[in-house]
Simulated scan of single mutants.
Amino acid sequence: MVDLAAYAGLFAAAFIAATLLPMQSEAVLVAMILSDHYSLAALVLTASIGNTLGAAVNWLLGRYIETFREKRWFPVGPQKLEKAQNWYRRYGRWSLLFSWLPIGGDALTVVAGVLKEPFWIFLALVFIGKAARYAVLAAATLGIVG
């Protein structure tokens, strides 16, 4: 019998971890793999989809946040935003393959929205990067690599 609540919990952890909110989805995934009660492929796919959709929230924030740039409460100063945009322009959309990185990965997904990266290209590249990360983590957990 499939425990949908457990998969939903993994999805939620992965989704939240990809937004600007702090969360660790890796620990949830590893614990579920080690429990040996779940399909490995389903776990990796669930975490990858959740994390990608969480990054899509960042893309949407980036896409529409510019309208608030002049507000006092805007979270990023003009210099920092310009620096991030220049970095993304320099390295391009392929940098989204590294959106899984714990430092800077979330910012990449926001800047992709600010710079109006086409959504379907964004989703594809982010999914590839995040799925590869979860697959390597799963393999390392099982002792296949590392």
Rank of each mutant, 00 (worst) to 15 (best):
P22L: 08
L40I: 15
T67R: 15
L108F: 00
L45V: 15
Q24W: 10
A8Y: 08
L81R: 13
S39K: 04
V111P: 01
E82T: 13
A5H: 12
L20V: 06
F74L: 09
I33T: 11
P118L: 14
A55P: 01
W87N: 09
V126C: 05
Q85W: 01
D3S: 05
N86E: 11
L123P: 05
A124M: 12
V30M: 02
A14G: 02
R90E: 03
G62I: 02
I103A: 13
A12E: 02
R90S: 07
F15R: 00
D106R: 01
V28F: 07
A138S: 07
L96D: 00
R69A: 14
A27F: 11
G129E: 10
R69M: 04
I103E: 08
K130D: 03
A131G: 04
S35D: 13
R63Y: 11
L108P: 05
K116C: 07
E26G: 05
G143Y: 10
A8S: 06
A14D: 02
W87T: 01
Y38F: 15
G146F: 15
L101Y: 09
L4Q: 11
A12Y: 03
A139H: 10
G129V: 10
T46C: 06
K80W: 01
F98I: 06
L97C: 05
P78R: 13
Y91I: 01
L4W: 14
L81V: 10
G54W: 03
V28D: 02
